[in-house]
Amino acid sequence: MELFLFVIFSLLTVGSAAAVVWHPHPVKSALFLILSFFSMGGLYLLLQAEFIALMQVLVYAGAVMVLFLFVIMLLNLKPRGEDRTAFKVRIRWAGPLALLFVGGVLTAMTGALARVAPAGAQGPEWVVAQGGNIRALGRLLFTRGLLPFEVTSILLLVAVVGVMVLAKKERR
């Protein structure tokens, strides 16, 4: 059952991701990206990372993608009929190059992967003892990760101010 779900979600994720790149229309690209993010949330559930799965759906598939769609609509972009032949030529050498890179990284990691062993103390039993994934994560986040957590608020503030400065119309 789990393997079945994994295959379904994986295919959906990778397939819709490919469609994002492939599809000439940005709105459709964005919709495919939402699908990809949803199915990735399924993968997170399979990994027993309930909190991350929730965030994936709420933040990514929800907030972020709404923003994307909003901007696309705002700019009223139409498919410009990008030169598809040129696009296909480009994909013919860019794809293999990216594959080479990631393949190279994975190959370089094979030695390390062979030595990966479950050494941590935070296995599923511990998580259950903590009262579930979300509770365990929350506890960790507000103890060990407190400072970085607070710092992210500054980052968000900077982003807000930056966006306002950028989007403001210049006064003439």
Partner: peptide, 13 residues
Amino acid sequence: ALLFVIGVTGVLV
């Protein structure tokens, strides 16, 4: 890895 390759390719093409 596949997702990453697709992302890189997309950025390039």
